[in-house]
Structure formats: structure tokens, C-alpha cells
Simulated scan of single mutants.
Amino acid sequence: MATSSTLLGQEVEATKHLDRDFVKVAAVQVRGYDKGDLPREGYDVTKKLIPYIDRAGKDGAQLVVFPEYILGRIDVPGETTQKLSAAARANNIYVIVGCWELKEDGEFANAALIFDRQGEIAGKYYKTHAAVDQYDPALPAWTKPPSGKDRDWLIKHDPEWIMEKGQELPVFDFDFGKVGIMTCYDGWFPEPARVMSLHGAELIVWINGRGGAVEDFIVKSTMFRNHVAMISTNQSYGGGTMIGDCAKWPTHILARCPDEEESYITATINLKNIRETRAASRNFKQRRPDLYGDLAKPDLPKE
């Protein structure tokens, strides 16, 4: 798995004429496998996704982003990823897409896969904050899965109670810039985006799979506080797929899909401006880490 020190998909010929100041990206709002869906015989979700990868390639986009969960429960690598690898390679484009990655030990993780320009799975991000429901009022809220439910029930109804949670917040080096990834509920916490930004992320990708719309106020505030551009995606039963950057004060949504519709958008992000803003940021320079230690404590004392 790539880390912040690894360039994803670096090839001299592929990057020689790349404009690192302005990067065109694409985001897709489309429906595929949902949170608790099991594999369906004869259903090949890549048939819906590959035409969008081709479209983004023809549009000159350097990256195309799909929603959370959408590939379903798959082996990585496997037959599904091989089809997406071929599409990424044919279009010389990065692809970020969500799935349930099945592990050899029977466990699974909510994964965002990164395909590089050569079609290799060059990185993964595992969701770090489980978005679970509260079923049993007799138990402390949000702390334990419902009692009396077996593994099969949890996989179908609320698999994040038993998924393998991510243990790090990596920043990935793409050939055009540094990229961080959040998955759905991760974005409701301010810390992940802040950590990734402080580790150099210039673009944060936020993939979702939920009803309702991804909150534009979270996108805008994340961009404003962290001096980053953002791409958010959602499945088309929801909404809030958008592309934004902080090139215009204080932030600017460049493009947004209509809610509850399958849709595709592109926009050009001004990374040069973002880098200049980050280099000159008084916010970054005047941080007081000596005051922030409580953020790392699991429980603060009640006064």
C-alpha cells in the first residue's frame, strides 16, 4: 500500500507534460452495491462504471472518483478490479472507488481503492470511523452491536459493527499532487482532514454511500480550515456529489450533481493557488499544538 512517500503511477512519459498547477478531475454520482448488499448473480457493476472512466478520459480528467461501497463485497485483486484496472490503464487516469474488501481470514474492510494510470491498485484507504446504528436501548449508545444478532444478520444490516477499521490516515502522492481520502462518517470528524492536511494533502476525496445529501457546509468548512480542494461523491439514491477548492475566498464549489440523480461532473482545480495559500498560511504558522493534547485523550474529565 502506498504511503505519503510513494508516487503513484510514476512514469516519465506519462508525467512529462503534466500540468501540476491546474488539474481537471471528475466525480460520478451513480448507484451500485449498497452497505448491506450481498453479491447478486449476473450483476456486473463495472458495466455502469467503466463508461464513466472512458468519459472522464476523453474529457482530459486526471482523476475520476466513485462512491463508497459501490463495488460490493469483492476480492482485491480479483475479477472486478481487473476490469477497472484495464479501464484506468486504457485512459491513463487515476480512479478512486469504494468496496467491501474481503480478507483471507474471513474479515472485511470498507475500502477505497486507488488505481493508478497503469491500472495497478497502488493504494488503499480503510474507513476509520464506523457508521453504525443504535438498536438496543439497554446498551450504551453506539458502543456495542445489538445483542442476539449473529454475524450474518450484522453483515446484511449493519456490517460496520464488525468490519476491520482503518488504523491510519495516509496521504498519497499522485503525479499531480498529494491526496487524502475520507469515507462517509470520517468526514463528520474534523481531525482526519486536519491530520491529512498537516501531512501535506492538497486534495481530499470524500466518498459516501448514504441517503440525503453530503453536507456542503462540511465540504466548505473543511476546505477553508485546511487549505485543501475537495471531491465528494455519493450514490445516486442520495446526493451532494461536488468538486470544490479554496482558490476563491473563502471557498468555492466548482460543480455539483443534482441530488437523487445519476450524474457526472468535471471541474479544474487550481492547485497552484492552493499551494501558495498553504505556504503563506498564518493559520498553519500560528498553531498551538501545546494546547491540543486533549484531542488525543479517549475521555476528557467531566467538570
Score class of each variant (00 low, 15 high):
2 A>G: 15
3 T>H: 10
6 T>Q: 03
16 K>C: 09
30 V>Y: 05
32 G>P: 08
35 K>N: 04
43 Y>F: 14
48 K>V: 08
54 D>E: 09
54 D>P: 00
63 L>R: 03
63 L>M: 14
66 F>C: 01
69 Y>W: 13
75 D>G: 03
88 A>D: 02
88 A>V: 07
92 N>P: 07
93 I>R: 02
95 V>S: 01
105 D>M: 05
106 G>Q: 10
111 A>Y: 08
113 L>W: 05
115 F>P: 04
118 Q>M: 08
119 G>Q: 04
121 I>E: 04
125 Y>S: 11
132 V>P: 09
137 P>M: 00
141 A>P: 10
142 W>G: 00
153 W>A: 02
154 L>K: 04
164 E>V: 14
169 L>V: 00
170 P>Q: 08
170 P>E: 14
173 D>Q: 15
175 D>V: 15
176 F>L: 09
185 Y>E: 12
190 P>C: 11
190 P>S: 15
192 P>N: 02
196 M>H: 03
198 L>A: 10
202 E>S: 10
206 W>T: 04
211 G>H: 08
214 V>P: 03
216 D>K: 15
226 N>W: 01
230 M>Q: 04
240 G>R: 06
241 T>C: 03
241 T>S: 11
242 M>L: 09
243 I>L: 05
264 Y>W: 04
279 A>C: 05
286 Q>G: 13
292 Y>L: 07
295 L>W: 10
295 L>A: 08
